[in-house]
Design a protein around this nucleic acid. Structure first.
Lengths: 188, 188
DNA sequence: CTACTCTTAGTACCTAGTCATAAGATCTCG
DNA sequence: CGAGATCTTATGACTAGGTACTAAGAGTAG
C-alpha cells in the first residue's frame, strides 16, 4: 500500500476541497490507485461527483450574484419608496467602508447612499446627478446603521430638473444632509 | 410555426442568460420545438452546452473569491501628490461603475474619486470630509478615463479645516468640479 | 415547380459518472 | 499458518446531457 486508506481519504477530502474541478481519473492518478477505489472513497466520505460539485459552486455564485449585484447597483437597501415624492434606505457600515485607522466611514460611501436614493426616487428611466451640495454633519462609524431619507422638493419639467433633499441619520441623529439637483429626461 | 426562428433564438439567449442551468430538453418544452432545434439554435448562437455553462459560472466564482473582496480603499490611482498642495489621480470607468441602460457612470463614483483624492492630499492622519459643493458638468461614460486634479486652496489651522478644489477631466474636458471642506486634526 | 430554409429524427459516440457483482490482494488475529 | 475481515480492482449494464453527422419531410419564396 502506498498510503493507508485513512490517509488517502483524508488527503482526498482536502484535494477536492481545494480544487472541486478534479475528476476521479485524475485523483486515481494522483494517489496511484484505481478509479474504482476513488469512487468507493467518495462514497464513504459522501463527496459528490465532479458535476454535482461544479454545480453547487455555480449555484452558490448565482445566489451571490442576486444578492450582491443590487448591493453594487444601489448603495444601501431601499425599504420604502414613493416615486417622485420620497424614499428611505438603510446602509450598514462595514469594514470595507471605513478608514482602518479610526473606523470612520469614508465620506463617499455616505454620499453614495444618498445619491443612489435620489436616483431611485425619480420616476424616470434616466436620472443623473447634476449638482450636489452636501454636508457631513458628524462622522459615521463602523457598524452604525445609516437611514437615508430622500424627499423630492421641486420638479421643474421645463428644464428637466428635479430637486431632492436627502437627510441621513444614525439613531435619529442627523449625520449628513444634501441637496441634489437631478437631471431627468423631460417626459415624465 | 409558433414563433419565428429569430424570435425564438432571441428569447433563447435571454432565457439561458437568465438561467444557465436549464437543459435543452426543458428549453424544447418551453418553446414547443424539438430538442434538435434547440441544439441547432445553440450552435448558431454559439451558446455552449449546459455543463460548460455551469462550469464557467463556477470558475468565475472561484476566481472572484480572490478578486471581489477589496472594495477599493482609494477610488482611482494617485499618480502625483504634493502634500497640502495638489494631487492627481486617474480613474478608468468600467462596467461596474455605469448604469446598464445608458453606460453613464453613476455620480457617486466620480465623487468618490474626488473625495479620495481630497483625503489623500491632506498631510494628516485623520482627514474627513465636512462639506462639499459639487457639480457634474457632463456625464462620464463607460471606458472613459477620468483625471482628477485636486488643489488645496486654503488651510485654516485654527478651526482645523482645509479647503480643496477638485476638477475632473476626460480628454481635457471638464466633467466635474467640487469644493470640499475637509476636517483635519489641528496639529500639522 | 424548384430551390431553399427550417425543423425533426435517428445513429454513433463522448464524458464522467452510478450501481451491483465478483474476484483478487493484503492484513490481522487466534 | 490459515481463516476471516478488510481493502482494492475489475467488469458490465445503465445514466444524463450532450456532440457530430446524415437524412428526410414541411413550408415558403421566386
Amino acid at each position: 500500500m502506498r498510503r493507508s486508506k485513512k490517509e488517502r481519504q483524508h488527503l482526498l477530502t482536502i484535494t477536492i476541497n481545494d480544487n472541486p474541478f478534479i475528476t476521479d481519473e485524475e485523483l486515481a492518478e494522483k494517489f496511484q490507485v484505481s478509479v474504482q477505489t476513488i469512487r468507493l472513497d467518495r462514497l464513504e466520505l459522501s463527496i459528490p461527483e465532479l458535476r454535482e460539485r461544479i454545480k453547487t459552486v455555480a449555484e452558490r455564485r448565482f445566489e451571490d450574484e442576486v444578492r450582491s449585484l443590487p448591493l453594487e447597483e444601489v448603495i444601501g437597501e431601499i425599504i420604502d419608496i414613493e416615486l417622485d415624492q420620497s424614499a428611505i434606505s438603510i446602509f450598514d457600515v462595514k469594514e470595507e467602508h471605513v478608514f482602518k485607522r479610526n473606523n470612520i466611514a469614508r465620506g463617499h460611501h455616505v454620499f453614495a447612499q444618498a445619491n443612489s436614493l435620489a436616483v431611485a426616487v425619480i420616476n424616470d428611466e434616466l436620472a443623473l446627478t447634476a449638482k450636489a451640495n452636501i454636508q457631513f454633519i458628524r462622522s459615521v462609524k463602523l457598524n452604525e446603521r445609516v437611514i437615508a431619507k430622500a424627499r423630492v422638493t421641486k420638479i421643474d419639467e421645463n428644464v428637466g430638473r428635479t430637486f431632492v433633499e436627502v437627510k441621513s441619520f444614525v439613531n435619529n441623529e442627523l449625520v449628513f444632509t444634501g441637496e441634489l439637483e437631478m437631471f431627468r429626461s423631460k417626459n415624465r
